[in-house]
Write a protein that binds this DNA or RNA. Sequence first.
DNA 1: CCATGCAGTTAACAACTGTTCTCCGGAATT
DNA 2: AATTCCGGAGAACAGTTGTTAACTGCATGG
Lengths: 207, 207
Amino acid sequence: MSHTLGVRQAQKQKTRRALLDAALALLEEQSLSSLGLREVTRAVGVAPTAFYRHFRSTADLGVALVEEALGSLHPMIRTTVSGADDSDERIVRAVELIGRHVDAYPAHVRFIARERHGGVQPVREAIREQLARFASEVKDELAKDRQAAGWSEDDLLMLAHLYVDQMLITASLFLEALDAPERARVTHMATRQLRLISLGRRHWPAG
Amino acid sequence: MSHTLGVRQAQKQKTRRALLDAALALLEEQSLSSLGLREVTRAVGVAPTAFYRHFRSTADLGVALVEEALGSLHPMIRTTVSGADDSDERIVRAVELIGRHVDAYPAHVRFIARERHGGVQPVREAIREQLARFASEVKDELAKDRQAAGWSEDDLLMLAHLYVDQMLITASLFLEALDAPERARVTHMATRQLRLISLGRRHWPAG
DNA sequence: CCATGCAGTTAACAACTGTTCTCCGGAATT
DNA sequence: AATTCCGGAGAACAGTTGTTAACTGCATGG
């Protein structure tokens, strides 16, 4: 199926990757709305005009980054929530998984947290859309649980959003936590917050 | 006590206000890291160099905006959480209060949501600090409740952070909700999320 | 009333921005 | 083997940016 694409398109995707990576690196210390086209091309080492061969604007590049940063997250979400029991060890594992993801893709996490409410409308929209998809997936997984008997679709979705938002908050806290003790504090708090939510879930007046 | 300050300082504070207001207006469609000094002065109608009489940089102006946007929120928080019972009508009133605040100061709310994870470090720090103060205040109010018997300081603080973050999320959702039906949906969801958290709070294994 | 202080102005600086047009070299197609 | 296609380079454009210096006019305190 995957035909070894020619030298031509291979090179194109190579510089495209370089542009995305350079942008992601530059965005650690600024927001997308201040990211210059020339700034990115300079970091890569190509002419400013080469940028247009790949993206219409920096906002367009931003949308591509959203797909990249959140698209790869779906499987993780699914495996985290699925299985459906909300035991303590499960919660501990979920927080660990978030921490691990932040370690693996810190720039992606920072980008999403920053641009979710950022100054570039199309990017905000793209993030909102992807997070809504996440919430919907989480909802579907929650529905499989026997604990969800009697829950309305609406209630499941509101719980799913609560989980997704909580996940993002925790990820952002991990990002700011530099030393080990601070990380431990974040882990501790996030774990108990999830535990409290699960407790509320168990006692939710359903049916 | 408040001596009617001279014509001199009155004019100064007047243009300072104008600069802050203009910046806040401009920040509805971009983030602070892309806000230009000249852009602000042009909107006000003063020379670019006049900016330096009031702020060292746009980052400095941003910090001032944080104080303004969050400083006025403390009384609201206090009256919302105090009283300590977490009845349903109390939750409903809290969500209403948030909605009202968003209506009254939409630009402030947008600014905080945007710059909390934004690209300007001093501003992020200022917001983090103020939100930590909020959480601490909420914690103190929660501690007064008879429901908090047996709760550790740590647990109270983690619940307080949960409330504060939830408040911000809700405020941000109100901001994006333009029409009445969408506002109703946000109100409905936020109310039930708070209710679920309160439920978890009631069943928290304390002592 | 006179001298000082200071908010705001004017002018100029080098550096930077996004965008257009023209061109080049080499892979892809025929 | 000849031709088309196309990613990237190069140069130039008008417009923008932050920051500096020296200035002006007027409210202020002696």
